[in-house]
């Protein structure tokens, strides 16, 4: 007997984590017009920074997480300022931008592996289980849920109500027009890259706390983040929101089906690949592009 409520709960939690991991990728992709393959390593970076502050330096958990998120933001901003902005201003081609983003990703990951070792690390926190009706959960999963909802809501406010958010959307829509109306493209890009990396770092901390910390923690969700980005429509925040829950749900239902078929549950990431390919065949512009055109 499958506990479908539990499956739904897991799907929502995974959807929240994917949402945090992907928002930055999608926004920076829409803004700078190239997929940043180093985004997965911001996830890893955030997780390792939290590990550094929490386990190695033994700080308070809120302080450690806050510092790690700030450092991730710093990392994202720095990689834009030092690497991608000069490359773009030199007129580097799309392929060169992608290659250097892969290079940056490897640089970050292997730097972390060198510093912290390539083995499995743990946050050494034991979460008590809470039962709500038929659903079994932990305080961590509830925290993920609340944090993701708060962040999603504040991002919605940011993008629709503030000047900065409107500037981000305008730049993603048409950079030349945005620049002509007096929007500072550099400031907008820097902010978006930092914000995206911060959220990615946040998701990395949650991912690592949920199970364990390995150097490949970010690379393992690379496939999912790109599937969500394309499914939602590149650069669309609401697209990411919808697509991450679609992916969370289909992965968790997929695991149920896989165990029923007697296949390994490792194939859950193949679900994301199927979604990615199906999106490219059926709707390459993503879900939200459709909504936009109708509006």
């Amino acid at each position: 007997m499958i506990n479908w409520l539990q499956v739904l709960m897991n799907s929502i939690v995974w959807g929240c984590m994917y949402m945090l991991a992907t928002v930055g990728l999608s926004l920076s992709y829409g803004l700078s017009r190239f997929p940043n393959f180093a985004h997965a390593e911001y996830i890893t970076f955030g997780a390792y920074m939290a590990f550094l502050f929490l386990v190695v330096s033994n700080l308070d958990i809120y302080l450690a997480v806050g510092l790690a998120v700030v450092l991730s933001a710093f990392m994202g901003g720095l990689s834009y300022l030092i690497l991608f902005k000069p490359l773009k201003s030199r007129g580097a081609s799309l392929v060169h931008l992608m290659v250097s983003s892969i290079g940056l990703g490897f640089l970050i990951r292997h730097f972390l592996m060198q510093t912290f070792g390539g083995g499995i690390q743990s946050f050494r926190i034991v979460w008590p289980t809470i039962s709500i009706g038929p659903i079994v959960t932990t305080p961590l999963l509830l925290a993920i849920l609340i944090v993701a909802l708060v962040i999603a809501f504040s991002l919605h406010i940011l993008l629709t109500k503030t000047k900065l958010g409107k500037a981000i959307r305008a730049t993603a829509d048409n950079p030349e027009l945005a620049a002509a109306s007096g929007i500072d493209l550099n400031k907008v890009s820097l902010f978006t890259w930092s914000l995206g990396a911060a959220l990615a770092g946040f998701s990395g901390i949650f991912l690592a706390m949920r199970s364990s910390l390995v150097p490949l923690i970010g690379w393992k969700v690379l496939l999912q983040t790109f599937a969500i980005t394309l499914l939602g429509g590149v650069g669309s925040f609401y697209g990411v929101l919808i697509a991450s829950f679609i992916l969370g749900l289909s992965e968790n239902v997929g695991v149920v089906i896989l165990t029923w078929l007697g296949l390994s549950a490792d194939y859950r990431s193949a679900v994301a690949f199927i979604i990615l390919v199906a999106t490219l065949i059926l709707k390459p512009e993503g879900l939200m592009a459709v909504a936009k055109r109708r509006a």
Binding site: P35, L94, L230, S269, A272, F273, P284
Partner: peptide, 17 residues
Amino acid sequence: EDFLAITMITLGEVMKL
């Protein structure tokens, strides 16, 4: 070309899986 890049980089992971 970026869509091809994304498909191919993820294909490598799926094949290994």
